[in-house]
Design a protein around this nucleic acid. Sequence first.
DNA 1: CGGCAAACCTGCGAGC
DNA 2: TGCTCGCAGGTTTGCC
Length: 284
Amino acid sequence: MPELPEVETVRRALSLALEGGVIRSVEIRRNDLRIPFPENLAAAMREQKVKSVFRRGKYILMALGDGQHVALHLGMSGRVRIMDGKDWAGPAKHDHFIIHAADGKVAALNDSRRFGMVFLTSDEWEAHPAWNSMGPEPLDTGFSASVLRKRLGKSSRPLKLALLDQRVVAGLGNIYVCEALHMAGLSPFSPAGGVSAVESERLVSAIKDVLSRAIDAGGSTLRDYSQANGETGYFQFAFSVYDREAEFCRKCVSNGDSAENESCRIERVVQSGRSTFYCPRCQS
DNA sequence: CGGCAAACCTGCGAGC
DNA sequence: TGCTCGCAGGTTTGCC
């Protein structure tokens, strides 16, 4: 699913379609996602103005006219389809939550694996458990090498796993952690608490760089993610390590290593149940 | 408290 | 063609 760049791509589409408009009705087709929708979800949204659509970590939040906020998490397989009323042919398989705007626009949350979430929170949303211990936004100027080092603390766990922890930094998932570590030339196995100031500097730059480029590309399309307009993102074509097991590391080759050097092949290992892709030569 | 495996659920591609 | 198996972008829970 969707990591920060994919969520941001969806947020932009929702913002364009709904911001400033009024919700005419909300259709709930099945309620048993990862957490059940709140009982009053449809009633709470009906006839409300959508003041803004923003993002925190991998959550999309819609601020409603009365101060309530609708939080949306796409889980692993969540997608949002947005269309004009004239193109709406009724719900598709796995459409669980559908917003009908007063101007006819329709936004449908489709989630085959049902790991996604929709819930309501107040204008004090930052105090909600989903966000009260969430780490900094990686694209904010406040996200710096020293901030990251403080967040990593003295933890002994592998750096890869620490970066997946949303309390360390918000929005990273398996793909972009692998990519950022490779770009920074850091080992996914080194203890998180041992990252030096210089390494943290490289890592922060890499994280910002890979996320910005992925957003510009409309995210990555793997298996079941696509943009709200049905088009696919194309950042997957720019992957350096993710899903490139046994292929040669481009960085090593462009640094003059012969393409026959077997230590330049991308390896895949499993850390805490998740695939890690890395170059054993330039990430040691 | 920190670290990690398992569970949540469906779909898809690979291999037989 | 059709089956089974393994694997998938996330988060939470519960165990050690």
